[in-house]
Computed example of a mutant assay.
Amino acid sequence: MAQLAVLVPGGRGQLGRDLAALAGQVGLLHAPGSAELDITDAEAVSDAVSSFAVTATDAGLRPVVINAAAHTAVDLAETEPERAFAINELAVGRLAAAAASRGVPLLHVSTDYVFPGDGTRPYEPTDPTGPKSVYGKSKLAGEQAVLAAGDLTWVVRTAWVYGAGGGNFVKAISKAEGQREQLSVVDDQRGSPTWSADLAAGLLELARTVVAGGAREQRVLHCTGGGETTWCGFARAIFEELGADPERVKPCTTEEFPRPAPRPAYSVLSDSAWRAAGLTPLRPWREALAKAFEVDGAAYRP
């Protein structure tokens, strides 16, 4: 199989950094941040995809775009919906069209927020969507724009992502552990914590499968850490990794911790389609958290 050349818009974000860290596993990897490649700039996007495709082809490599760029500020999106849709729908659609026009496969990262969050079993990719927040609606619109661009587009939904780069739940809880004797954390929302390093590895595996002609029947896939927990359970596990008493984390309800954007009560995503495509399921979330602290413990501790 020919080596990959991977272009990663959003390359300075949490997931983008972990994809960049895997550069040694591909022939060429370019992960520009928004300062270098603003995906809302249609001309810049077209030029970037075109030049990357030419460079890759000239080097005998197979180009793939993995889009990690997004408006991810869930609460802020409620007050700036135009910007959320400009990035998560319009810009993503243009990126997908630019890739499709050059025959370059595109993998687009999406979210559990496209579902209503009232499920009682893990969501399948084919289950009806019904986002409740502006963020979720903008991401669903982006999915539709990506898939409409052509047959060489894939959507990968994930959830509860954390990593060594950027801000996330693990870092917030680690900081709070050192500042407060007791924490109250929501215990009536369920999901699957996902280590961005594992997600990055899964996306590269999918990219290799795609260029080899696979995953044609599963163009919407779910990829999260294995198993499920609540935010409270996740926080207690983080305390354990910090060597702190997990009983200092107390459960509370969503109503006791209101946020501007509604959160899904149930965000567990099924990986059955991922497995059906012959892809390796991600490790269990608790095992991944322990590995994350082993590898990048300093990044998670304040």
Rank of each mutant, 00 (worst) to 15 (best):
K171Y: 03
V161A: 13
E89I: 00
G278A: 04
K291A: 15
Q14S: 12
S270C: 05
D58S: 00
E256Y: 11
G10W: 02
E294I: 02
E287G: 08
E82V: 14
R301T: 12
L29T: 10
S34L: 01
A100Y: 00
G233K: 02
L221S: 06
V161N: 13
P246V: 10
A70K: 05
Q144Y: 01
I39Y: 08
R248C: 07
H222K: 03
E240D: 09
Q144S: 14
K139L: 14
R216N: 05
R236A: 04
D58M: 00
A42C: 07
V295L: 15
V268G: 06
K175W: 10
L29S: 13
G213L: 05
A200P: 03
R301P: 02
R180N: 14
H71T: 07
G202L: 05
S184C: 12
W195L: 07
V155S: 07
V49E: 08
L28E: 09
A59I: 00
V186G: 01
R180G: 06
T229A: 11
P262I: 01
Y113F: 15
D118C: 10
G226Q: 13
E143D: 09
G33Y: 02
D47I: 11
P251N: 09
G130S: 14
P128Q: 14
E217K: 08
N67T: 03
V64H: 13
K250P: 00
E177N: 07
L4N: 11
Y135M: 14
G142N: 12
G191D: 04
V92S: 06
V45I: 09
G33F: 02
V8G: 03
H71S: 10
V170L: 12
